[in-house]
Amino acid sequence: MINLFNIIPILLQAQTVSPSGVKERLLEGIFNVNINNFLVLSGLLFVIGVAGVLTRRNVIVIFMSIELILNAVNINLVAFSRYWFLQSEGKNAYMGEIFTIFVIVVAAAEAVVGLGIVIAFYRNKETVAVDEIDLMKW
């Protein structure tokens, strides 16, 4: 009988031997989805977030980029949480996830206050572009 679910694993479980060069290492990483892949993903999202902060003019979009950075961190935390769950047989396994929840909470608080400032600012200056916000007072 055909088991649809076994085809893909077979395809993906092609192990490379002795990862010595960069290419091999990359290949090995790609075919074994482990914590490293999560970390790379998280790193990429982080970098994208940083790029957003650096290049955008709209304060709100900058805020969103910061949320993206925090989200990248969260991926890290959750991945490590799972990793430790398996490594330590369940001891302290949920701390990463709990920390993630705290990060989300703090992100929410940050967004609330930040957006409050944006609204207050917009009411005075009618703009949300950072390059027009260059004075400490108005």
Binding site: V50, V53, L54, T55, V59, I62, V130, D131, I133, D134, L135, M136
Partner: peptide, 13 residues
């Protein structure tokens, strides 16, 4: 000291 947010962020990066 430009006063621009992005520049400060840039320095951080």
């Amino acid at each position: 000291q430009t006063g621009f947010l992005n520049n400060y962020a840039l320095v951080m990066v």
